[in-house]
Simulated scan of single mutants.
Amino acid sequence: MKNLFIITLTNSLGFYIASTLFPAISLSSIIAALWAGFLLAIISLFLKPLLLLISLPINCITFGFFTLVINTWLIQLSAYLTEGLSIPTFKFALIPAIIIYLLNRVRLTIIQNKT
């Protein structure tokens, strides 16, 4: 439960940073960012392993870069399901995917250094 909360906050921060840096990504409130972060965490928990398994051959061919495409699709899905978040195109959904990836790497590095 604690881990889901931290992942939700990390995702929400990624959506907030992306909406601040790029005006095409609109975020109506912090509540919308938290909701989108929570949805992304839940969607990634259940749907991402299945998509990674299905796309394993293409992921091997692209040396894992197709995972970024899957993350972008999941971000587009969470933006579609969130009322206060608007991401117009795949290109603009790629930006939060990269930001959230980097924030998650920082989060995992901090957790590993604590133990």
Rank of each mutant, 00 (worst) to 15 (best):
T72Q: 02
S55F: 06
F63Q: 12
V69A: 14
I54K: 08
T62Q: 08
L45M: 12
P49H: 05
A41Y: 01
L47P: 13
L77W: 03
S78K: 00
S55V: 03
I70M: 03
F46M: 09
L68T: 08
F66W: 09
L56W: 03
L50P: 15
T67W: 00
L51P: 14
I58M: 14
G64W: 01
I43R: 13
L47K: 11
L74G: 04
L68Y: 03
L68S: 06
T67D: 04
I42C: 03
F46S: 12
S55M: 12
I54D: 10
I58S: 08
T72S: 09
W73K: 07
L56C: 08
I70K: 06
V69L: 10
F65V: 07
F63S: 13
S44C: 09
L53C: 09
A41N: 07
T72Y: 00
I54F: 07
L45F: 07
A79Q: 01
L56N: 11
S44T: 09
L68M: 13
T67V: 08
L53E: 06
Q76L: 13
S44N: 15
G64F: 00
I75E: 00
N59D: 13
Q76C: 03
L68I: 14
S44L: 02
P49F: 01
L53I: 10
L50G: 13
C60K: 15
N71E: 01
L50T: 13
T67Q: 06
L50A: 14
L51V: 10
T62S: 15
L68Q: 02
I54L: 15
I61G: 10
L45N: 03
L47E: 15
S78M: 08
L47I: 15
